[in-house]
Design a protein around this nucleic acid. Sequence first.
DNA 1: ACGCGTTTGTGAAGGAATGCACAAAGTCAC
DNA 2: GTGACTTTGTGCATTCCTTCACAAACGCGT
Lengths: 232, 232
Amino acid sequence: MSADPSSRRGIPDATVARLPEYLRALTGFAERGITSVSSEELAAAAGVRSAKLRKDLSHLGSYGVRGVGYEVDHLAYQISRELGLTQDWPVAIVGMGNLGHALAAYSGFATRGFRVVALLDQDCDLIGQEIAGLPVRPMSALADLVAARGLAIGVIATPAASAQDVCDALVDAGVRSILNFAPCVLAVPDGVDVRKVDLSTELQILAFHEQRKALARGSVLVDGSLRRVASE
Amino acid sequence: MSADPSSRRGIPDATVARLPEYLRALTGFAERGITSVSSEELAAAAGVRSAKLRKDLSHLGSYGVRGVGYEVDHLAYQISRELGLTQDWPVAIVGMGNLGHALAAYSGFATRGFRVVALLDQDCDLIGQEIAGLPVRPMSALADLVAARGLAIGVIATPAASAQDVCDALVDAGVRSILNFAPCVLAVPDGVDVRKVDLSTELQILAFHEQRKALARGSVLVDGSLRRVASE
DNA sequence: ACGCGTTTGTGAAGGAATGCACAAAGTCAC
DNA sequence: GTGACTTTGTGCATTCCTTCACAAACGCGT
Ligand SMILES: NC(=O)c1ccc[n+]([C@@H]2O[C@H](COP(=O)([O-])OP(=O)(O)OC[C@H]3O[C@@H](n4cnc5c(N)ncnc54)[C@H](O)[C@@H]3O)[C@@H](O)[C@H]2O)c1
Ligand SMILES: NC(=O)c1ccc[n+]([C@@H]2O[C@H](COP(=O)([O-])OP(=O)(O)OC[C@H]3O[C@@H](n4cnc5c(N)ncnc54)[C@H](O)[C@@H]3O)[C@@H](O)[C@H]2O)c1
């Protein structure tokens, strides 16, 4: 009953999260004309250990050749297929402020299986303007986009205060995958996936380790600030 | 010899990654004038289970009161201190293209313990221009920024092709924490932390789950594209 | 045909993170 | 003070992820 590969059900989340990086590394090899790689080489390019890479790939099937390695094109195709990138996914960006502008102008979407089909905003002054070749449309266009264009993924680039409203509108329209740039948690019904990209969180994690390193190096914390301690 | 709290060494990475979210939730409560929260309430606001929250917090010490909960301000302070946010961290942004512009204009830095002290680019046409009140400076300014301004964190917003060069320059200048927006893996010496924010990766993970959901719903994969199967 | 060197795929071990359930510790009303 | 009630902090079981290490599988040279 189940399709092609074997009897693989459920690829671990941790593995799925790394597949895009493997795909990117493979694309890099392909561009340099390399047609075959070992798990060791590919792992190095993707920044992981080879054992981890091999176990990850084993979840999608057995696409390597023992004693030789992996054929670059074939493996790239298999990963693409697993990730659902053999088709284009229609994406809408909501919130055409600073970040929305940058996202709209970003060429990295198209090259990786995504197509921005609409830019949305609430602001009357923005609606109708063209950004990166697309007109800004009102939120009321959402339902139609889902029905007519197969819109599947929504990107939220509005302030945090509006993010939940925008999210609700997307879900109501039938969007089931959301990428959220606003620094807040979104409540969604079952069956809807949300992923968050959060700049401040990343910086704060860096700050934690930076402080750690400074303290290990011998600095001291005075009044909440690091002070370099005289040494050597 | 070790300072205040108890004998806590080594907070789990997974916990550190969630502390910023807890901090944000606490800030939200504080803004609404709420002075005390239970682990249940705080967990809901942060999007986790209360047991996980309590275990996370237990790693920083015992700052709750049984039968009552946590004092919002006090807990926020403790988390801030742990993350190293009681001091400001000087940040430089390298690469003043679309994304760099948006980042420079972003107010979310300052409100969370970070201060953008410099904008850098290689492009002669950009150098000298003012963006969001700061002049764009050449890469040669790096060494001085580290020495004179205590620059600790570098943000890379250049194309992937230049990212490793920029990274090397940052490391040479003494920067030990890097946030990378370019879609590539960076090689750094021991003692340097890199975190990556990658839009495409996130979208691809969403695509994976989206495809999964579509297949579960009864669609079929024809030639790499999803086809809705006639039903009810 | 056959053995040698190489590299995959995977069981098994180890470690990290999560979820459960409850004793301990506190508040508050009276 | 005392007892009822609430909520924390944590030991334990479980699940998830990573790492190790090696037998099985393959290509190639002879
Ligand atoms: N700018 C950055 O570099 C950056 C970085 C990280 C995170 N963020 C986050 O991304 C989000 C957007 O940032 P920004 O700097 O572009 O903000 P911005 O204020 O420049 O733009 C927000 C846009 O959203 C629109 N909007 C507001 N409410 C809306 C609604 N209900 N429906 C539709 N559109 C609505 C506004 O009209 C505006 O055009 C914020 O949550 C911010 O915290 C931004
Ligand atoms: N724009 C987006 O929304 C977006 C989203 C996700 C990821 N990214 C990634 O972020 C990066 C920047 O994107 P962008 O759209 O702003 O690109 P961009 O081309 O608009 O800007 C790149 C800037 O980097 C500068 N630069 C190039 N080489 C440099 C060097 N060696 N030293 C210093 N500066 C240098 C260029 O002068 C230019 O100003 C890219 O890697 C892109 O893939 C962008």
